[in-house]
Design a protein around this nucleic acid. Sequence first.
DNA 1: CCATGCAATTTTGTATACCAGAATGTGATT
DNA 2: AATCACATTCTGGTATACAAAATTGCATGG
Lengths: 225, 225
Amino acid sequence: MSQNGKLATDLVQKLERDIVTGVLKPGDKLDERSLSERFGVSRTPVREALQTLAGSGLVATMPRRGTIVAAITVAELIEMFEVMAELEAMCARLAARRMPRVDIDNLIALSDECGALKDHADADAYYEANVRFHEAIYAGCRNSFLERQTKNVRNRLAPYRRLQLHRPGRVKTSNNEHADILNAIANGEAETAGKLMQQHVAVQGESLNDLLAIVPRGYLEPLAS
Amino acid sequence: MSQNGKLATDLVQKLERDIVTGVLKPGDKLDERSLSERFGVSRTPVREALQTLAGSGLVATMPRRGTIVAAITVAELIEMFEVMAELEAMCARLAARRMPRVDIDNLIALSDECGALKDHADADAYYEANVRFHEAIYAGCRNSFLERQTKNVRNRLAPYRRLQLHRPGRVKTSNNEHADILNAIANGEAETAGKLMQQHVAVQGESLNDLLAIVPRGYLEPLAS
DNA sequence: CCATGCAATTTTGTATACCAGAATGTGATT
DNA sequence: AATCACATTCTGGTATACAAAATTGCATGG
């Protein structure tokens, strides 16, 4: 997948991580010169990295006006959740039909892991386990293109989705839904698995009003990808 | 959407057109120097353009080994059609629920246009009308993110899909399916519209064996995106 | 005649220099 | 005091120069 040279590739990964984990917030300006001296390289690989990130939608650059971490509008967020729900539903449907036994066992283990962390104080720990559970299902669809596509959209939503889990009660509900989804997949009930997953994801998009209440200032400024 | 400078943006559009329309074939080498002198610019905007195209998946570049027009393997093609069918189905479902009357009228006109060309000798003319019909449905879903995502995948499949229509009888069948889809959308039958569209697209992926028989040499070499 | 290794050339990756357009600040004028 | 014009400055876009890696071709040896 990685197209650029070594330096540029490194930059892509570092910046991607910073954006997805929230170190860099939506709307933050990404000045080429600052980045180049911060990483000790010239502007060229920095530009290539930004170019790549722009392609995947994580940053947005306006001609002659620079690059910022993609700040998604509420309308765009709703749209993306709508698509995300359907992509994950597709993964779940296919996983129910194609996931081999050994991978299902692994999925059960990941679900247990989520269960063990659901009452834990550390929301981030649950978040990580949650990601692993979902990614196991992506992998289970046995369609590497769909897997990449889904992960891409998830990454772009990551800065906003992380906030979701801090909503009271959401973790527990989420965990229950996991159990149902797992069940459907293990039993090969494709349509059920898809339906459940669709709702599981879509509910996050539908509660965007709640999300807006806790979103930090600066998250909802101008621009979509 | 466009991130690069003016020159680079132009290049992206020109190269994209050449790839989608088949002037440049999968596997063709894209030499930076040749391109730069062909377009009368330096290597920098050329590199940026290739970078952008790599991001959208239309070209593939291996580090230190250059860039080629993305040559998709058969396995990857099957995967992509599987996803494409689902994306278009989603568009159709949403369009059935959201498309305003005036746009439906326009869709009817586009369908008629396809019908008028279905017996015509010029397969390319039907192909273009077909694209317009499908794009009208993308637009009808009222989800610009989904629309972009769908168009992106379609572009990547375009070099291969174009071959499909040269299969005898396909045009007529395709046209009948259009009529059914249009009907479902006009009547607001979301699930039906989605189902029909899913099949309409998936059948192209499932007939890949036939496609392989007529694919020109050089189309199926090494690399996926 | 074929294989292997080295050299020359080609081509990509990175750095730097230069140019152009946009933002900003200052001063004059109303 | 507010606004508009102009100049300065800052930042992004493009070109060019340089470095490193890979491919190619040739020569040499088996």
